[in-house]
Each structure stands twice: as structure tokens, then as C-alpha cells.
């Protein structure tokens, strides 16, 4: 399995269905990765709904750490894209024209990230995912901003964590640089939505501490912690413990 960046970009045409989903016209049916499902010897136990599991290895034999990390980031962008698509499809009352333009930019950027990762990963990539935002209040400006802040800060924290999870050879450095190019734009997003919610909170002390050993540094969170925060929105059980790349 090749681990080079470039070939995957040139390998797979963009499926039309993906575009329709991305444009918000339909919700594509997900094909989930079923990993670690129950054995066959449980016929005597009461039937309980089985939540499918998502593994960032995508069950690809010998998948590289670089691609596992990209699958993880890809899933975060899928989530954020689905969120912004829901917002843009029905802006809440109270959101001004200027803010609607800003959120349309955010949606567009997420669409580009999602499609880029999909392309880059090729056969290594996890399938498109479904999400639920039932626990969010998307009908009010305050609800949308609170959710956007959460998703943007979590993604910044995730990017700040994964930098050491790539291989240290030149290929890993290419992955690192690709991720780094997105990481700072995500920080711009986070600052923007935070400032919309509370003017002046762009680098609030809840994300950039003023004191202590790490004063002046941004937050970072390990994959397991990020995934735990996102449990309410995934329709699958996300597994990070099955690969050393995310441990």
C-alpha cells in the first residue's frame, strides 16, 4: 500500500453522489465500517440494537499511521461540514446577512477539506458518515454559534495534537504540512465564530492560557478525548483504541 500523497489525488474521480450530498441536496446513505460486531453465539440473549462501529483503520490491511490520522481528520471535517450544511440550509433568525456570508464561507471551506481528504485517501478512506444534531439548537443564532464554537475549537485541538502522529520521514512531513495548512485556517474559523458569540473571546483563556507552563499556547486534545466530546453527533461508535497511530 503506497503511502505517497500525490497518487491518491489523481486516482479517484469525484462521485456525483458525493457532490449532491455535499451540496446539501440529499443525505447520502452511509456505508458503515462494521468492525467488531457481535459473534454468532448470542442467539439466546435478548435482541438489542447494535450500534455500528467506526474504525479509522477502515479495515485496510497494513494501513499506514499517516492514513489513519487522515481518516480521523476526515471524519471531523465530515461532521463539521454536515453541521454547516444544516445551518446554511436554514439560517436561524437573528443571523445577519454578513454572518450568513461568513458561515457560507465556512461551509465552502469544509466542503473543500472533506473532498480533498476523500480524494487523498482513496481506497484507504472511510465511507461518508451520517450525523445527528438533535441535541443542538440550530433554530437560534445563539445555538448555532455555541455549536460552531465547539466544533471549531475541537478541530483546532485535534490538529494541534496530531502533528506528532505522522511518520518522521519526508512522506510524513508532506502529510504534516498538508494538515498544518488547514490547521491555521481552522484557528481563524474558531476565532471568528468565538468573536461572533462573545466579542473578544477569539483567544480566550479557556483556549489560550495566560499563565502556567503552557501560557500562550493553544489547546490540544488526544483523539479519544475529541471523539468523546463528539459522541452525541456520531451515529456510529467511534473507535480510536484499535490503532497505535491514535493511541
Amino acid at each position: 500500500m503506497s503511502d505517497k500523497l500525490t497518487p491518491f489525488f489523481t486516482s479517484t474521480p469525484l462521485p456525483r453522489r458525493t457532490f449532491l450530498r455535499a451540496a446539501g441536496a440529499t443525505v447520502a446513505t452511509s456505508t458503515l465500517v462494521l468492525a467488531g460486531c457481535s459473534d454468532d453465539d448470542d442467539e439466546n440473549t435478548p435482541a438489542t440494537p447494535v450500534t455500528p462501529q467506526l474504525s479509522y483503520t477502515n479495515n485496510v490491511r497494513n494501513i499506514t499511521a499517516n492514513n489513519v490520522v487522515f481518516n480521523y481528520l476526515y471524519s471531523l471535517h465530515q461532521l463539521t461540514l454536515a453541521f454547516y450544511q444544516a445551518v446554511v440550509a436554514a439560517f436561524p433568525t437573528g443571523m445577519t446577512t454578513a454572518e450568513q456570508a461568513g458561515f457560507t464561507d465556512l461551509r465552502d471551506h469544509e466542503l473543500i477539506y472533506t473532498e480533498s481528504y476523500k480524494y487523498l485517501l482513496g481506497a484507504n478512506g472511510i465511507a461518508p458518515l451520517d450525523f445527528t444534531f438533535a441535541t443542538l439548537t440550530l433554530t437560534t443564532r445563539a445555538g448555532v454559534l455555541a455549536a460552531a464554537k465547539k466544533f471549531e475549537d475541537l478541530t483546532v485541538a485535534a490538529y494541534n495534537d496530531v502533528v506528532v502522529r505522522f511518520s518522521t520521514d519526508n512522506t510524513g512531513k508532506e502529510y504534516l504540512l498538508f494538515a498544518g495548512k488547514i490547521a491555521s485556517v481552522k484557528a481563524r474559523h474558531a476565532a471568528y465564530v468565538r468573536d461572533l458569540e462573545v466579542s473578544g473571546s477569539f483567544a480566550g483563556t479557556d483556549v489560550v492560557s495566560n499563565s502556567g507552563d503552557l501560557a500562550g499556547l493553544d489547546i490540544m486534545l488526544a483523539p479519544s478525548a475529541v471523539v468523546t466530546e463528539l459522541v452525541p453527533y456520531f451515529k456510529v461508535t467511534v473507535v480510536t483504541s484499535d490503532t497505535a497511530a491514535l493511541a
Partner: peptide, 26 residues
């Protein structure tokens, strides 16, 4: 960043400063 890749803690710290600069810029 590519020249810090051999030291995990320093690479992480540098890129965590990097995202703070991006917040400032925004």
C-alpha cells in the same frame, strides 16, 4: 515545522503557538 519533526514536544508546542497566531490574525 518540518525541521522540528524529530522532537515531538517541540513540534507540538511550535504548532500550538502557530494556531494562536492565526487566532490573532483573524
Amino acid at each position: 515545522a518540518p525541521y522540528l519533526a524529530s522532537n515531538d514536544d517541540i513540534l507540538t508546542a511550535a504548532l500550538n503557538i502557530h494556531s494562536v497566531e492565526a487566532r490573532h490574525a483573524a
